[in-house]
């Protein structure tokens, strides 16, 4: 294998595994910047994966090649609806954010499998026929060296996610909406005094995270697993949460961290095809994202970087 082929293999598989993490981590960034801790990302991804697969299986013949992309939207919408539970519980009903998020994680897998059994009469779905597969950018793929590595046989959802993270960074830091959202996560009392609708902003944050988490789950299901079962989403939501922290609650940071964790995940899978990595025991690659997150948290003392009012209920005085 020459160097370009090796790099192309690493980059493309990194992109494939990063895409779901980027979407979901971006969702986490928005939720937590609005002040709502969301450890329910794992559950939201599960529901997104489930609904995308069901949509894909049902409509593959009708929509053809567009099916996986429509599946993303469906996964996102269902994820958004599912995250409403978290929003209502934490924003209106004063629930603890961690418990409410845990409920999403407890609820999603059995709900998904129950519905699969109710619809298909078996524990896991068939494999989808229209999956994301590999994509080559016309024109860009022909650039020497860079083309084959980044633009040939690559993951289209990953590129969408990368572009999206730039857009979401711009919205969060350069627009009025973003400033208001962040103010609700930093100091809801002050935001409220200035006439910002704290509840509304926090709803926006959680629902955006629901949509993006659903999209993340849909990407994973339609690009990697190819079907839905209880073991489709096992830990990806928590890795996305880790990526959000590693990325310091910033969309661009979360994207970079997701790419890194995607790299670690893909190495544990394609490692035996690579010259250097085949000697490293798989376990190190598997636990790397989690260990790194803890180290990062310790280095930042775990508190200096999170939005100040993240995880705290804001109860509007009458």
């Amino acid at each position: 294998m020459n160097l370009v082929t090796i790099l192309a293999l690493i980059v493309s598989s990194t992109f494939v595994y990063s895409a779901p993490l980027i979407f979901t981590a971006l969702g986490g960034v928005y939720s937590e910047n609005s002040g709502i801790t969301n450890i329910g990302l794992e559950g939201i991804m599960t529901i997104g994966a489930f609904s995308a697969i069901v949509f894909n299986l049902t409509f593959a013949s009708a929509f053809g090649k567009a099916t996986p992309w429509l599946g993303l939207i469906v996964g996102g919408i269902v994820g958004l609806l599912f995250s409403l539970l978290h929003a209502v519980a934490t924003i209106n009903f004063h629930a603890d954010h961690i418990i409410s998020g845990t409920v999403l994680n407890l609820m999603a897998p059995p709900l998904g499998v129950f519905l699969v059994k109710a619809i298909y009469d078996k524990g896991q779905t068939e494999n989808i026929t229209q999956s994301f597969g590999y994509f080559s950018f016309p024109g860009l793929a022909d650039i020497p060296v860079i083309g084959p590595i980044f633009f040939q046989n690559t993951s289209a959802p990953a590129w969408l996610a990368i572009v999206l993270s730039v857009v979401l960074w711009w919205i969060l830091y350069k627009t009025r909406f973003g400033l208001r959202l962040r103010s609700c996560g930093e100091n809801p009392q002050a935001a409220d005094t200035l006439g910002i609708n704290v509840y509304g902003m926090r709803y926006a944050g959680v629902l955006i995270s629901g949509f993006l988490g659903g999209v993340g789950g849909a990407v994973f299901a339609e690009a990697i697993s190819g079907n839905f079962s209880v073991s489709t989403i096992v830990g990806q939501g928590f890795i996305a949460l880790a990526a959000m922290i590693f990325g310091k609650w910033n969309p661009l940071g979360a994207m970079m961290a997701s790419l890194f964790f995607g790299f670690a995940q893909s190495i544990s899978i394609i490692g035996n095809q690579l010259p250097f990595f085949s000697h490293i025991p798989v376990v190190y690659m598997q636990i790397a994202p989690y260990v790194i997150t803890i180290i990062v948290l310790v280095l930042f003392f775990g508190k200096s970087v999170a939005p100040a009012a993240d995880g705290q209920n804001y109860i509007k005085s009458k």
């Binding site: 539970l85 009903f93 629930a95 603890d96 418990i99 409920v103 407890l106 059995p110 059994k117």
Partner: peptide
């Protein structure tokens, strides 16, 4: 009836415990 209904019920119970304010 699929077994998963049990886990759904448990998760729902915890949801209601979480929103005990209501």
């Amino acid at each position: 009836i699929p077994y998963e209904i049990v886990s759904i019920v448990i998760a729902a119970i915890i949801f209601f415990v979480a929103i005990q304010y209501v």
